[in-house]
């Protein structure tokens, strides 16, 4: 398996950073199924903070509620729940940025995908890693003018 050495590396990294097993987390170096490396993630909001980046001058008025990951085959699968907590319609765009185990870019930059959010509504954005080298990701959102 290709994953094994990587897994070892992640565990080693986690141990080196001195973070022990936390309640509710299934694997070392993972939170809610998502790779977190040596970051301290003790709650969903920590995970969201670690994985979501807002770019551009006009950051969208939405909340990223949840991020969950799993693997199908050897590809990382990600679900992101976006919540528009206001009554106004919100137009935003998003993309995923993929990194390999060493933090290098694992795939070409994705194109921006437009997303229409009705007021007070949730939407789940799902994606799958473009290849098996992609072990980590960032979810990037930007406001659409």
């Amino acid at each position: 398996m290709k994953v094994a050495p990587l897994f070892v590396a992640l565990v080693a990294a986690a141990l080196a950073a001195g973070c022990g097993t936390k309640k509710g987390f299934e694997k070392e170096g993972f939170a809610f199924g998502c790779p977190i490396g040596d970051q301290k993630v003790s709650s969903m909001s920590d995970l969201v903070k670690a994985k979501v980046a807002k770019e551009g001058s006009r950051s969208p008025d939405v909340e990223i509620e949840e991020i969950r990951c799993t693997t199908t085959g050897d590809l990382l699968k990600v679900d992101v729940v976006v919540y528009n907590d206001e009554s106004d319609l919100e137009r935003l765009m998003y993309k995923f940025r993929w990194a390999d185990a060493e933090g290098m870019r694992a795939a070409d930059e994705e194109s921006w995908k437009p997303l229409l959010m009705y007021g007070n509504s949730r939407q789940t954005v799902t994606t799958i890693a473009p290849n098996s080298r992609a072990r980590d990701f960032k979810f990037i959102v930007m406001g659409q003018e």
Binding site: T72, G73, L75, K77, E110, S111, P114, T127, P130
Partner: peptide, 21 residues
């Protein structure tokens, strides 16, 4: 944008097909 979006979404969907997995 339509071209990129359709292509990317289709690719992601296809990658999950059992024949390809």
């Amino acid at each position: 944008t339509d071209l990129q979006r359709l292509a990317e979404e289709m690719t992601q969907s296809m990658l999950q097909a059992p024949v390809i997995q």
